[in-house]
């Protein structure tokens, strides 16, 4: 298993480099000649000011040199300063916001996977039964309706009417743990709803197959308890494709946080990125894309590891 994880880690290096290239290239492609210096100098900028700023920021250097310079300082944790506010470093902007995004995404995955697995197992135990049909209709509805819309409806009761949760804004765990949980629960639910549907569907189908397999039949003939048939014999097999689906969803959820961040008025990575795009804030954009890319890589690593834990074949073959 250590060797398996080691190989996975090594495989991340070229991916990291590719993410760096893409983050840099997309941001650079957005910048029109002189636009960065223009936005630094402000309205009515003089040509002198622009030329001076470009020299100062090294923007008149060739692309590869700019990339290497950026990558080298990024490796030390320095992602430059925000173009709209030269006194703020990109790293501190990201550090300030990534906590909200990561806690919402992680929380949503916990809710989504737990609820989806419970629903998937209930469906698979009696496929075509009343519970299965009700749950399948529910998950179809969850796929059809955007999660944040349903979360807004929920927020009407849970936050506005009953006041259990906070309807908007983000409280840091350092300020108040309960406040933190109250602030991220609704966005996390919003993000979790499609995950629930996805996990329910995937697990229902793989679990139905597993329960009809010969090894489960053989286990039944051996008198193995029903709970153990489901939990120890069928579930580990059924989880193998489900974990892959969860991995895809985790990466997608990271990209979709900006919707719930906007809806619930939370300053996270999603809003940071969209603002950077709108204001052509190239350094912030490069830096946050790089960081989000790295987070996705780490998520993939975790998926690969749990995949290896579940499937002995994968663990030993590679």
């Amino acid at each position: 298993m250590a060797r398996y994880i080691g190989i996975r880690l090594l495989a991340m290096i070229p991916l990291l480099f590719a993410i760096a290239v893409i983050s840099f290239a997309i941001a650079v492609a957005m910048e029109a000649r002189g636009s960065i210096a223009g936005s630094v100098c402000g309205e009515g900028a003089t040509i002198e000011c622009i030329a001076q700023v470009e020299r100062q920021l090294g923007l008149d250097d060739p692309m590869p040199i700019r990339f290497v310079r950026w990558l080298a300082s990024a490796a030390t944790g320095d992602l430059g300063t925000s173009l709209t506010n030269q006194s703020v470093s990109v790293s501190s902007l990201i550090a300030d916001r990534i906590g909200a995004t990561l806690s919402i995404v992680a929380y949503s995955l916990v809710i989504g996977v737990a609820a989806g697995m419970a629903m998937g197992i209930v469906s698979a135990v009696r496929p075509g039964g009343v519970a299965d049909r009700a749950l399948s209709v529910a998950s179809a509805a969850l796929i059809a309706a955007p999660g944040f819309v349903l979360a807004m409806l929920l927020s009407w009761w849970l936050a506005v009417e009953w006041g259990w949760l906070s309807p908007a804004g983000y409280t840091r765990p350092s300020e108040s743990i309960t406040g933190w949980i109250r602030s991220i629960t609704l966005p996390a639910i919003g993000l979790a709803l499609p995950t629930v549907a996805l996990v329910q569907r995937q697990l229902r189908s793989s679990m139905t197959n597993a329960l009809q397999s010969r090894y489960v039949l053989a286990a039944r003939a051996r008198g193995i308890r029903r709970t153990s048939l489901i939990g120890e014999h069928a579930l580990p097999n059924a989880m193998i494709p489900t974990v892959t689906a969860i991995g895809f969803r985790a990466a997608a959820a990271l990209g979709l946080t900006f919707t719930v961040e906007v809806v619930f008025n939370i300053n996270g990575m999603g809003t940071l990125l969209t603002n950077a795009i709108q204001t052509r804030n190239v350094t912030v954009l490069q830096g946050s894309m790089l960081v989000v890319g790295i987070v996705v890589l780490v998520v993939n690593l975790l998926v690969d590891i749990s995949y290896g834990l579940l499937n002995p074949k994968v663990r030993l073959e590679r």
């Binding site: 010969r214 090894y215 053989a218 286990a219 003939a221 014999h233 097999n237 579940l310 499937n311 002995p312």
Partner: peptide
């Protein structure tokens, strides 16, 4: 019981 297919009748995990 000993079942037919030795591949699918043993749990792969």
């Amino acid at each position: 019981a000993v079942l037919q297919d030795p591949y699918s009748s043993l749990n792969q995990v």
